[in-house]
Design a protein around this nucleic acid. Sequence first.
DNA 1: TTGAAAGCGTTACCAA
DNA 2: TTGGTAACGCTTTCAA
Lengths: 342, 342
Amino acid sequence: MNKPRKQPTMHDVARHAGVTTMTVSRALRPNTSVSSNTRTKIKKAADELGYVLDGTASVFSSGKSGFIGVIIPTINNANFADTLRGLNEGFKDQRLQTLLGATGYSLSEEERIVQQFLQRRPEAIVLTGGSHTERCRKLITNSGIPVIEMWDLPKQPIGKVVGFSNKKAAKLMVKHLYDEGYRRIGFIGGDTTSDMRGLDRRIGFIESLKEFGLSPDRMVAAGEPPVAMNQARGAVTEMLQKWPDTDVIMCVSDPLAFAAMTECQRRGMSVPDDIAICGFGAYDISEHALPTISTVDVRSKEIGEQVAKKILQMLDPESRDNENQTIVEPKLIVRDSTKKQN
Amino acid sequence: MNKPRKQPTMHDVARHAGVTTMTVSRALRPNTSVSSNTRTKIKKAADELGYVLDGTASVFSSGKSGFIGVIIPTINNANFADTLRGLNEGFKDQRLQTLLGATGYSLSEEERIVQQFLQRRPEAIVLTGGSHTERCRKLITNSGIPVIEMWDLPKQPIGKVVGFSNKKAAKLMVKHLYDEGYRRIGFIGGDTTSDMRGLDRRIGFIESLKEFGLSPDRMVAAGEPPVAMNQARGAVTEMLQKWPDTDVIMCVSDPLAFAAMTECQRRGMSVPDDIAICGFGAYDISEHALPTISTVDVRSKEIGEQVAKKILQMLDPESRDNENQTIVEPKLIVRDSTKKQN
DNA sequence: TTGAAAGCGTTACCAA
DNA sequence: TTGGTAACGCTTTCAA
């Protein structure tokens, strides 16, 4: 009950302008029936008093928080950062604002954040992937708040979905490698427990190899997600010790691929002549590394844009029911790091 | 006035547990005087009803939003992402939550976000750098909300400061280059208009060269911030056309340095034998590139941790007045990309 | 340790 | 187009 400072309220503005708070409230919002005279008068009064709308009261009174809760695994990832940019651009100049949370690839942390967010009464919640704790699912469904899961195609979606099949995306790459003539194909990913999208890529890798009649033995777990550059050295070492004749290493992400590549180069191996490398995610680095790194563009930013679009539709009572699932197709990008020479 | 769904209120819980709302309110918060009997009873009742505290009402009623507004230039930058991680870890398990905004290096956008944030009544605001529009400064000071500016040491700080001198940090690097024997030193940065930290580094570069009796001509503007890898090629081209005998290129950030390096390598130049390269920011890439890239570690994460700590102090009425300015000293990291061979 | 009553500043609703 | 009035669900304050 003790506001940090005595700021002018709507009441003060109303008195100053000689109207009621209701008129002030209307005048300060767009698309409301207020005569332009009154509106200018009120805006002037508000300016003079240095009035700033108390959003906490609006939210409480209207039941509309203007928040969209967005939960991603980590901020320190250019792919998710791109998704966020897409989202924010979609909301720009709308009344909506993102409330961001990062789970660090932990489902229990996700649950914690969801619970925290729920108290803010967001108008929609965006989750990354389709794996959540039971309690998390229950909290969300009980709240009745619309949900979008992104970056994946969950088997049992909570609400709507914007994403792609990480399994299929990985298969795209394996097919390319096979077509290029590679047969001793290795895979470096994170531990399989927490990064479900990484896991799906690994599954795609395994299935795909089997389909081509190859056996998917050459797999190394680099450690806890987020798998970063500094896990590459150990993983490459393990790979080359166990299977020295590996002719290509497929990595679960571009930064890992890059670091794996330079590790190979440090060992005096030439990429792609002695060993080929490929990544995932179409990070900037894949385009600028030497050699350039083959990758899969999962169109991270477009995912964000589509999510924003879908949310705007879901929140619009006028809008007819839209698709439950939007698929953003990944695209293979072939570059120098997987070009067979012979 | 129309909440999206009829959820149970504190009143319902109170009735269910046979107490008043006030007791429920207390029971649901830590450090309040409620008998453990009553508390268990109330928690049970809340659980049974599936009650979720309406934070919007708490915020409104208590005048404490629990928000810390944090404004950075861009999310897609590992340095700022690290700062955010430091911040969030500092707030973890506290009642505070970050509300994040990205300006895209635009001061007017910063002003827009500040205005938006102010409506949420954040308990503190964290800004990046010391440059803001006049109106932005006024909005913030009028609000009476505590401010921290970070990542810089502003001449006229609005409130408290956690940062370092970008100028001095750049000088650290120039001194190293000079000591190493380089004399024809070039600089690639962004345009000077919007990224003030980048600008300060440039100024440090210029001043430092003058101090060493060298003339700071070899400067190329890569374009609009955020300066990214794809601006390196053009910048390197310009640099080598205008000053073909440049013996080292200092870049305003590591990603740029990396891309500049690979561009040189593509042209058949060897780094550091034919030309040396260095960056700024101690990004992962600088450690894993081949050769490894000399850089300045600005300890981004520590900045975030210090900001969180300072905010906690500022918000604690018990705490004695703390320092107005916390300096986090950057550290030079010398790597292979600037090792003179002869 | 618990309760009763009074707001907090805005918006919804209905009337003028 | 404008005004009056009643919430919105919680916390503060003070009293028991």
